[in-house]
Design a protein around this nucleic acid. Sequence first.
DNA 1: CGAGTTGTTGAAATGACTCAATGTTAGTGG
DNA 2: CCACTAACATTGAGTCATTTCAACAACTCG
Lengths: 260, 260
Amino acid sequence: MIANAVLIDCLRANPVFAQLDDAALDVVLAEATIRTVAPGDIVVRQGDAASAFGVLAGGRAKMIQVTADGRQILLRYIVAGQEFGLIAALPDLAYPLTIEAVDECQVLYWPGATLAAYFGRYPQLALNALQIMVLRNQELQARYRELLTERVEQRLARALLRLAQVTGSCDKDGTLITLPLTREDLAELVGTTLYTVSRTLSQWDQAGLVNTGRERVVVTDAAGLEAIAGTAEVLPVSCVAPCALVEMMTAARAARTPRT
Amino acid sequence: MIANAVLIDCLRANPVFAQLDDAALDVVLAEATIRTVAPGDIVVRQGDAASAFGVLAGGRAKMIQVTADGRQILLRYIVAGQEFGLIAALPDLAYPLTIEAVDECQVLYWPGATLAAYFGRYPQLALNALQIMVLRNQELQARYRELLTERVEQRLARALLRLAQVTGSCDKDGTLITLPLTREDLAELVGTTLYTVSRTLSQWDQAGLVNTGRERVVVTDAAGLEAIAGTAEVLPVSCVAPCALVEMMTAARAARTPRT
DNA sequence: CGAGTTGTTGAAATGACTCAATGTTAGTGG
DNA sequence: CCACTAACATTGAGTCATTTCAACAACTCG
């Protein structure tokens, strides 16, 4: 069992609950269900009725989408503190993606109706949700554009840089991506084949840009990868550490309403 | 000048203002600024501070995004009744795309702060906005997946079918896409080159699937194109005619709150 | 009519995919 | 501890879809 204080911090760190006072957070947390999901198990399944909203309190998970012909793509990874299923607040919609636990995950759940009720009780939450969706939309648009205009090399370089930022840990001579990343995972993430990923990584390994192993990538020359990625673009929203995002959002909001 | 009744209908047809009573719509409309934009002129510019929210009351416009290296992609077309710039309700963000008028456009504008105030006054509007963003996100995710897994042929076929649904007018032996579409426009829309588009269309023209001309495409065999597009996927949200969307949404909402 | 935009088509180049064979690593159970 | 297995990774060769480049044809508009 995770301590309540940790869970509260988890909510406090999440942009959905930004600007909610501690008393309210206590109430919200009290209404949550907590569940443990084993590695490889499904948190929510694409196509199912979107009945619950959730926050990842521990562990990491991947958001994947399956195509009609069985291929699957990896949209992004979520880490502790990040939410999913805002869609559950709206009636009669289905989850557009599957979330699969990478590590053992602790997940806080609320029924969609409860989230909708929160929107009525704490109007700020609805605005927070809107902001999250707007920012996520921007990120997705940017990735769409990248996919349309850039090569595999560029996209792979950027993907590695992003992963290093979100789940990287300092290693001797580089940043280790702590996720267990197979070549196939990377391929699904950037939209290519595992063969191309393998070839490209081997090449970069020899050039000294990265250091690869089985399910392991260490970024040793971030600047070099950035050069390949091209545009030094702003880090997408969902890859910003939750705390940083909250700071950004509250700062922005404070600027808008100087006196409260 | 457009008659007030027409403008009110425009708002009523827009999902943002769904479930708002006529009196409120009058108030909202009274606070709007109307502007005419000449073909080819810019409605909002990517990178500018997102200061205004708008609804297209007449004409058609394209949403485009420019990459760092000058290439541009065409995200989608919007037609009368559709909104843009929900982002303006949030503080300190910039427009992520440029909107360029195709025809002469009539545009209703509200300052972002006014939209934010509406969210406070009419809480349903905030939920409507959230729903729109959630659905749009789903659509974008679907297109992202298509881009990752499908060929140019499939994507082009689907793009034509979508365009025919949104801006199609019945023609002898087919549906004429009324937008002035150059081969380059189509290329930017599906993410390819104008050469490939030209070749593919020529081929389809000979096969009797379409009927092409200068800046003109008539879909003569929709079933044939659907066969090429593959998955008979649900039409994406932003391509559903605004009225149909409203019906869908209000029906869904009614189902959720049976007694009001 | 001339100029500029738009569209077509061929030939060559190429990035990326597919297939197949093989090597490597981690984990399992005897 | 070792053989065995399954998952993961590498690499080469061939293929294909798509792009690129270039030349030319057709249409529109002043």
